[in-house]
Computed example of a mutant assay.
Amino acid sequence: MDRLTVRLPPDLTRRFDAAAAMRGGRSRLLRSLIEGAAQASLPASEARPVTRLEAKLSLRLGVEDLAVLEGEAARAGLSRTQWTVALIRRRLHDRPQLTPSEAIAFIGVQRELRRIGVNINQIARALNTAVLEGQVLDLEMVQLAAFADEIRAHLGGLRDAFQGNLDYWSDR
């Protein structure tokens, strides 16, 4: 049997309990309310499958642990739930978990690598279509070598960033 959990303010809980007492208790009243809502059919155009998580995980932490968790999450720019999910997913799937600022930085690196790739393609096309001799060819080859060095530097930075992300979410 599935279980539903609802969080209510104390005043609303007291009022619901008073109403439920005359109808057989909380469970019976909730079940009848849910059955009534479930029997109300939706128009065909609105009927669509409900996607939901298969399970919910709840944690109870001490005040000190919760404070540390909230501090870590805030430093990463995440809510405590987002941070906890990222930690679990990192351990389960062994993949980087990017914060919003990290994702933006990686998009910037990708954009720069594309720019360099376009420049290299233009140089290669020019080398293939023109007969270059002497200093002109030497200059083009130097520029190609500089682009290759730049790409290697960006790729090294990208590797370091991914490793830093993996290290952050790993055991300390």
Rank of each mutant, 00 (worst) to 15 (best):
Q143M: 14
A124N: 12
G36I: 07
V118N: 11
G62S: 12
Q97L: 00
R159S: 15
L4Q: 10
I107W: 06
S79G: 00
L8D: 01
G24H: 01
A126Q: 12
S170N: 04
G24F: 02
R172G: 13
V136K: 06
R26Y: 03
D2H: 11
E133C: 05
Q122G: 02
A74V: 06
E72L: 15
E46W: 10
M22Y: 07
A55V: 10
F106I: 07
L158S: 09
P100H: 04
N165F: 05
M22C: 08
S27W: 07
R95Y: 08
A73H: 00
D17F: 05
A86G: 05
A86T: 04
E112C: 05
G71N: 09
A103I: 00
P43H: 01
R80P: 11
R115A: 06
T13V: 13
T129G: 11
I123N: 00
L92H: 07
L4P: 08
S170Y: 04
H154T: 08
L29D: 01
D94K: 12
A44Y: 06
D160F: 05
S79Q: 02
E72P: 04
P100N: 03
G157R: 09
L144E: 02
P10R: 04
A153P: 06
S170K: 02
Q163I: 09
E64T: 08
R28D: 13
E112W: 09
E64I: 12
R89H: 11
A148K: 15
L66Q: 02
S101G: 07
A148H: 15
H154L: 15
I34Y: 07
G134R: 00
D171H: 10
L57N: 03
A161V: 03
A74L: 12
Q110Y: 10
R31I: 13
L92D: 06
Q110K: 14
V109Q: 13
L4A: 05
Q110W: 14
R3V: 08
D138N: 10
N165M: 03
V142A: 14
Q110T: 14
D94I: 04
A44I: 12
L66E: 05
D138I: 10
D160R: 05
P49M: 02
R95H: 09
L158Q: 15
E72Q: 14
H93I: 10
E35L: 15
L59F: 04
M1Q: 13
P10T: 11
L98W: 05
L92P: 03
A86I: 06
R26E: 03
A126F: 14
G134K: 02
V85K: 06
A37P: 01
R95I: 03
D17V: 06
R26T: 00
L29E: 00
P49A: 02
I104V: 13
L30R: 03
A47E: 12
G157W: 10
T129A: 12
L12Y: 11
N128H: 03
M141K: 13
E64K: 06
I120V: 06
G62D: 14
A47R: 15
L29M: 04
S45W: 11
V68L: 15
A86M: 07
A145F: 07
R31K: 14
Q143D: 13
E64G: 03
D171C: 09
G77K: 02
S79K: 01
R26G: 01
G134Y: 03
I88P: 03
E150N: 11
L4V: 09
P100Y: 04
G117Q: 01
F147K: 01
E64F: 13
R89D: 12
Q110I: 10
